[in-house]
Amino acid sequence: MLPELDPLLHSQLRLQIMSLLAGISSAEFNFLLEETGATRGNVSVQIKKLSEAGYIKVSKSFGESYPLTTCNITDKGLKAFDTYVENISKYLDRKKE
């Protein structure tokens, strides 16, 4: 039987955000915005969901004269992401058979 895919990660924008954060130490909100190509509101909502699940940590600070939002993936998030990638591979392997 195939494992269930994490519903929090099995969504285009949230998966984009998690994939971006998995490869780096931390990223500013604007980097996520530019790379995903999504709207500011949509990225904000998905970041909030990931943060509430404990998958990412959101820090707010002040830049030169503007508020700065920085995100980084947590250990829990990285583990969930690894499990998701593993499960996706199992699904695709099964399809090939």
């Binding site: 998966l15 984009q16 998701y84 399809k95």
Partner: peptide, 16 residues
């Protein structure tokens, strides 16, 4: 789909 998931991960990871 699962295939699209994989494409998203490949496209986004190590973008920095």
């Amino acid at each position: 789909t699962e295939q699209e998931s994989l494409q998203i991960i490949r496209g986004m990871i190590n973008r920095a």
